[in-house]
Amino acid sequence: MQKYFPIILLLLMCSVKKTPNLKPYFHHELSIDEPSDICLTSANPGHYYIVSNRGSIAETDSNGKVVRHTQWDGSDYEAICTKDNMIYAVDESMRRIDIMDESNFKLKKSVYLNYTGARNKGIEGLIYLPDQKKFIAVIEKPAMLIEMNEQLQVTSQTLMKQFFELSSITYHDHFLWLLGDENHEVMKVNPDDYTIVQRWSLPVVNPEGICFDASGNLLIVSDDMATLFKFRIPNP
């Protein structure tokens, strides 16, 4: 029996339950190069901010059409969120969070965040949780969650061994939603103990940004396809 064990193990591994797929009901090719994260604007929940690791931030309408954008400055923006009418954009290479006025994209201040891992394996996603008055940033590989207070001081770093890698994060319907670009999947996660409640596979190459619109639809931006996708999450 023992000699058949490797074969049985192989068959078991190949028969692991498949992650259900989501199908987009909408997609639009963006005019933004290398889009890497997305969030809703404060002033208009039908508009989105999309950052590019080519160094620009754009505001788009609900279909992904750019209505205004910053000038190219060489920054490597990989994550974005909003708080109190301010934009918080993360330059992954420089380990810097730029805080800008939403109304005119004017830079108010920058905060340096020390993280010594690989240059392109730094902060990939950022959210602000108003109820808990804290920011959560995700590190791609090894997957890690960094919690920060409102002054962007790090309060905890948690290695997430249950995730292969992470490319973005958002908060919706009392759950954290984590995105993995290499596994091209989205995971609904319990915010208290970080256990995975549910996961779906996305037919998207290199998904880098995630958020939900005001109607509860899942928005995903693909870096390699430079495309905005919209999905409906099925009811459990």
Partner: peptide
């Protein structure tokens, strides 16, 4: 933490 990146912002 295999690779190392140093940055001053």
């Amino acid at each position: 933490f295999a690779q190392f990146t140093f940055s001053n912002g």
